[in-house]
């Protein structure tokens, strides 16, 4: 069985709060493998679900992004 592919989630730093992304990754840590890095304007989260299947990885990415957005809004923005 091949390893599931990673998805890159690229969060614009002017739109998402860094701590919100940190917190979101912690919340979903049990369900996936995450590698975090930063570029000039972007937080990058490379992720894949622990259990195989591209649909699972996509869903994990979507849930993570929603969670990060929710926390960002609750903080009052980026």
């Amino acid at each position: 069985m091949t390893e599931p592919a990673f998805i890159d989630l690229r969060f614009d730093r002017s739109l998402y709060a860094g701590p919100a992304i940190d917190e979101a990754v912690k919340v979903f840590a049990a369900h996936g493998e995450f590698h975090m890095s930063e570029e000039t304007d972007t937080w990058v989260v490379k992720l894949r679900a622990l259990r195989p299947g591209p649909a699972r990885t996509r869903r994990l990415a979507h849930e993570l992004a929603n969670y990060a957005l929710g926390l960002t809004v609750q903080r009052g923005g980026a």
Binding site: P19, V25, K26, A29, E33, F34, M36, E38, W43, L50
Partner: peptide, 11 residues
């Protein structure tokens, strides 16, 4: 800021 890698076992 988000730094480093987080893998698997932390919830």
């Amino acid at each position: 800021e988000p730094t480093g890698d987080t893998t698997g076992d932390t919830t």
